[in-house]
Design a protein around this nucleic acid. Structure first.
Lengths: 222, 222, 222, 222
DNA sequence: AATGAATGAGGGTTCATTCAT
DNA sequence: TATGAATGAACCCTCATTCAT
């Protein structure tokens, strides 16, 4: 039987998944290696066969899920098409799908908040790989919209943050209040997009949105 | 001597302040009672004279700062006047002052995110005392604006969350990226208010805003 | 009661004694902190109140007994008088008393042999503080004897090591064979001194020895 | 294939050599089976194919080198010839060659000192096979010398220990101070032999030494 | 009121040993 | 034969908590 080989190849992944759950549940400091081990169905010692220390396990776990998110984001952006407003919608859709509603992305934020001070390189890498590029992409998109006359020029400064804030806010509420939070997700997103576009668009932009005219430039990938 | 009495009365407060700093620095689990004691200028044992356990110290510390925020919020709301848009501005001003920019409010959010699962009553109380009332107040305010024709009716559903999201987003960025975050706070707030009002107001509302007509109802206090 | 203060002052010493016994019994690596604690009549944790790590405990224990030996050696040398041969006898007497027969000195040698590679500064300090000075002193003594015509000039090179070797040899036998070693200590020392002086002395020296003529120079202290 | 068979036959020896190096380097307790395995170029598991436990590996390793030394000693003694003094010289030469200067013999002493208490049968066997016979042989040799008038009768009691002490002393210095020890080995041995014979020989013995008259009895082998 | 020595229950990590492959 | 993943029993060290002073 190839059982042995199969396990060997999959163990690190299983442990990383278990680590994600365990760390998400109780935070880095309060999680015991034994908790992780139990979730992974192995004993404490086995973890040390694959990961040097608790810190390394945490880092590699975060890295692992970061890579996933990065790949998804790149893929998403490569295919976004249509008017500036439609591109914006596509981007927000990704944000909601990956950050607010997907547990993985959500808990990554918790890790940043809870343990970022203990793992500064984790924060830095997140900033470099996600936050800055994402902000940059939206800023570009907004600038393109302003250039094409679709968006009001006031959004050039810090518009990007304002634009995505509601999706992150929803994420945060979920992190804090969990499933107790009674929010109609679809309505929430609709409200976000409505308010956003209404605040963003020029009269000309509104016309373009209904007529479906494409936004001038293509977005650069992450 | 009076000195002794003074110390006695102030000790719990000093310890609570120290606890805030210590827990904010490293999180609940990773903070040692001795860290707190050292910051408060006492020894471990002294803390146990005032607080039963580490958990209780944490809870009472959070309670203490919650009460402060609660008082401030109540005061602020009692005096908000003017048009609906101006009331909204006043509210946002409070949000930025207390959450995004004030360290105290900011770290309270960190406590929620990091240790909320271990202290559910803390989360619940925060929800009951802050989140729900604040959302309710804004919802009322928005409803009033819609009723008076100032605000577009689309904001009735989940508009409140969208409205405050950027201020909380800024808070979160500060929590995660700390002082490394290069954001022009004034411009950020200006962008927020601009985009928000532009998205929110009806044509009639725009006129009212410039003419300074007050919004119909008063807001209920928290 | 002053019980508390008394214990506090004496605890480190008690722990060091316990550490000596424990480390002598099983070696550094095989000794558990709990062994030391049990011998000292405290719990594991208490040791860490006084000593940072197991390594530091070991080092401080060795330092402690080294200081004792150093003081004794200095005192001994200050008072050695008489002919060169008599001074030599006095020195050997010290060697036997402190190294071969005293458990403390004996186990210090075991620590050097067993754990010297892990504690190189311990070895270096032992070399600097004991071995080199002791060899130097004997070499001086031998040189003085050669100068006065009492000792044969052949001993000038490496005579010091040959001279003390039997006392160290006895120490080593005790370390290895323990109480199983059936050696008549007095006879052993007598044989050592007899063979040594017989090999060392010139015909003139023999006369001086019986007539009690003092050796020219005084020895320098350690 | 022959290669496989060759390896099979040599593996235990390779592991024993690796074990010697590893245990000599860090001591029994601090040495990991993996250290041994790495030195032997195999994996941990392979060692357990040849040796039941870490303890057994240690014991068999010591046994192995003991047998080597035993064989050498026997061979040496069988051919020693000449005067008593010359036989003594031959014996010392063996001591220096096998104990003081040969790494193998030297480290055996370290094992005795460091781990003898944990392996009492090892100590006992060493005593029975080496120490006691060697002492006995020298004692016999000295007795023969006394009987023949070559040696002074004072050496009959404990003379053997005194006689070999300097060679063991040099060994010990090497064990403790390693290569930092600056000793001119040839001069050291010369000083030893000079002082020893001078202390040992009667006037008649001196004559015999120069004239080369053989010592009466043959030595019994170990 | 406060100290700080001491406890004791863990938690992270190591490592001798096993066993399926 | 040999591998190396896995186990589980320790071991070092930490820290919340207690209590005599």
């Amino acid at each position: 039987m190839k059982e042995r080989a199969r396990r060997k190849a999959e163990r690190p992944g299983e442990i990383i998944e278990a680590a994600f759950d365990a760390f998400a549940e109780r935070g880095f400091a309060a999680t015991r290696m034994e908790d992780v081990a139990a979730r992974a169905g192995v004993t404490k010692g086995a973890i040390y066969f694959y990961f040097e220390t608790k810190e390394r396990l945490f880092e590699e776990m975060v890295d692992h899920y970061s890579r996933d998110m990065l790949a998804d984001a790149g893929a998403m952006l490569a295919v976004a098409q249509g008017t500036c407003a439609e591109k914006l919608r596509a981007f927000l859709s990704f944000m909601y799908g990956r950050c607010a509603c997907d547990r993985r992305g959500r808990e990554m934020i918790r890790f940043m908040v809870s343990d970022g001070k203990s793992f500064p390189q984790l924060v830095e890498s997140h900033h470099r790989n996600f936050f800055a590029p994402a902000m940059g992409m939206i800023a570009e998109l907004l600038a393109a919209g302003v250039a094409s006359g679709d968006f009001r020029p006031e959004v050039l400064k810090h518009g990007a943050e304002i634009v995505i804030a509601p999706s992150v806010f929803l994420t945060l509420m979920r992190l804090i209040f969990g499933s107790n939070l009674a929010i109609d997700e679809e309505a929430y997103i609709a409200a976000h997009v409505d308010l956003l576009l209404n605040g963003l668009l020029t009269p000309a932009g509104r016309e373009n949105l209904s007529s479906g005219k494409a936004c001038g430039e293509a977005l650069s990938p992450i």
